[in-house]
Simulated scan of single mutants.
Amino acid sequence: MKWFEIALVVLTLGSGLVLLLDKLFLAKRRAARAGLLETEPVLVDYSRAFFPVLAVVLVLRSFVAEPYKIPSSSMMPNLLIGDFILVNKFAYGIRLPITNTKIIPVTEPKRGDVVVFKPPHAPDQNWIKRVIGLPGDRIGFHGDTLFINGEAMTYQVRGEYVGQGPGAEMTGATLLSEDLPGRTHTVLEWVGRANPAGQGDWEVPQGQYFVMGDNRDNSEDSRFWTRTHFLPEENLRGKAFLIWLNCEGWFCKGSFEPSRIGTGIQ
């Protein structure tokens, strides 16, 4: 939520500024009038109490790891509705909060990475998909098959998927292993029911990526974006790496799957 990020930055800077002004000016005045038993102003007292906490949260959330909750089924079977995940914020470079401007480059996304980003047509939202196409790649999707640079990916059928809780709607879909170059992962497909709107061929421009959901017939991804089919590098927020909780609704009302706690994201 961008409003939370803005509020966190404003409160941290504000409380820090109050402490700085107090140290430079107000504290000296109070010391000069010490005989009057003058107490510390309430604003300074609150700033002293909250600034360290706010600063730690801001640094961790902006530069180390940020939590997100999965709201949809687009990344099933690997990420389920209600999964709480952690995202590595420095994997693709150190970025400033709010503006997301990269100030220190680190590495670039690899094919198969699960990334959180701001979609170009909805910049106030955070989405999660898998990187399929790298800059310069030719991506094709025809029928139920993904093509990368003219080569069809290979698949192994692992059986019929049985969903639970909010994911029960996908029961009956086919669970497959998809062999991306250098990365094997699972996908869901309703074999033989390919959506014609999601078929086509695309060439990924420099500095951009082609992303897809693992739930191939239920994902609003690069195949369906109309203004541009590609994710700009500057829209990346980080790399998803860990599920730390699975819980439907507030206070875990509804489904709760403890076995997913601590699961790495492949």
Rank of each mutant, 00 (worst) to 15 (best):
M1N: 08
F4N: 13
F4H: 05
V10L: 15
T12S: 14
G14D: 11
L21G: 13
L21S: 15
K23D: 15
L24E: 11
R29K: 13
G35Y: 04
E40R: 14
Y46H: 15
Y46V: 12
A49G: 11
A49H: 12
V53P: 04
V53Q: 08
L58Q: 08
V59Q: 01
L60E: 13
F63L: 14
Y68C: 08
K69A: 15
I70S: 03
S73D: 07
M75H: 06
P77Q: 00
L79E: 00
L79T: 02
I81S: 13
I81M: 04
G82C: 02
I85L: 09
I85W: 03
I94E: 06
T101K: 11
T107P: 01
K110M: 10
V115G: 02
A122S: 07
D124H: 12
D124Y: 04
K129S: 01
R130M: 07
R138W: 03
G140C: 04
H142T: 00
G143F: 03
L146F: 00
F147M: 03
I148A: 02
I148L: 09
M153T: 10
T154H: 00
V157Q: 08
E160F: 11
E160A: 10
Q164Y: 15
E169Q: 10
T171H: 11
L175H: 00
R183L: 08
V191R: 12
A194C: 02
N195Y: 03
A197Q: 11
W202D: 00
F224E: 13
F230M: 14
E234M: 12
G238I: 05
A240M: 11
F241T: 08
L242F: 09
N246Y: 03
G249S: 01
W250Q: 05
K253H: 14
S255M: 07
S259E: 11
G262R: 04
